[in-house]
Amino acid sequence: MTTADVYLQQVINGTSLGAMYALLALGFTLVYGILELINFSHFNVFMVGSFVGLGMLELFGVEPNAAALTGFALIGVLVATFAVTMLASGLLGVVIERVALRPLRNVKGPAAMITTIGVSYILFNLVLLGVGADAKNFPSPLPSISFAIGGAVLRLREILIWIASLLLMGGLTYFVQFTKMGKAMRATAQDPDAARMMGVEVDRVIIMAFFLGSALAGAGGLMFGLYYNLTSYVIGFTTGLRAFTAAVLGGIGNVPGAMVGGVLIGLIEAFGSYWISAAWADVIIFSILVLVLVFKPAGLFGRLAPNKS
């Protein structure tokens, strides 16, 4: 392998991881944009999502030693698994908002944020109780096809992650930019009182932000399983913290910022692991976070808080 091949391999790995971080970062940013709340339960919605995906794949009979699916069967299983995982995760986010956060809506201070940490621990322990502490093997329905590009290897799982994330991020961008509900979300993020005066039902906007963010986190959880071929009750914290870093890096509250931030974090992780050591990945990621916060506190693309004008 030449150096160029190695770099290309890091780009392939980094953009795949980064797409997953981006999906997760979007949930932080959507909720923060509207409520100015950092939702730590999001970490473990992602983790629950990976287990929902695992359950769905098992339901479809995808097992570690089963023959790989092809053609329409493969596409059908993937679409159904993504759809159910995202729906279940989205509903989990809506339930969290309704049960744990809405009663605290008008409470000032950090109460709501601390509640999200509590919810995060509840999910963490429920999954631990339900499936045990061992990492679970995550079967892949994908045939093990790979392409050699020079010395670098591109596998089907990376292509799947790219396609799925592009579709999801494209869909979200379209929703936020062009639909009536998406515009109501932007208006609420920019000036909630004025949005309410236009007749926007702000509670519905908040539910939508939780649903979309959590559904994307669920998709991210499923991708995590497909990428690493395992899942565990602990994956929420490490991955969630990196994705949160991605959201801050891009400027929390900023939707395109979260996407770019996610991909950047993925690339930093891949190249950092290569140049230094995988064990240092988090040290590198959080050092960059510290540098960004020192020199550009609002993130690369700005918007720390909605401008209330």
Partner: peptide, 29 residues
């Protein structure tokens, strides 16, 4: 608002990062 009361808010309160057209659309929400 549905019954026919619309506000012109103090200090105008446009949505700063939405276009003028989108601001008008929000009025027709």
């Amino acid at each position: 608002v549905r019954r026919g009361i619309a506000p012109v808010l103090e200090a105008r309160r446009l949505f700063p990062r939405m276009t003028v057209f989108e601001n008008l659309e929000m009025g027709a929400y």
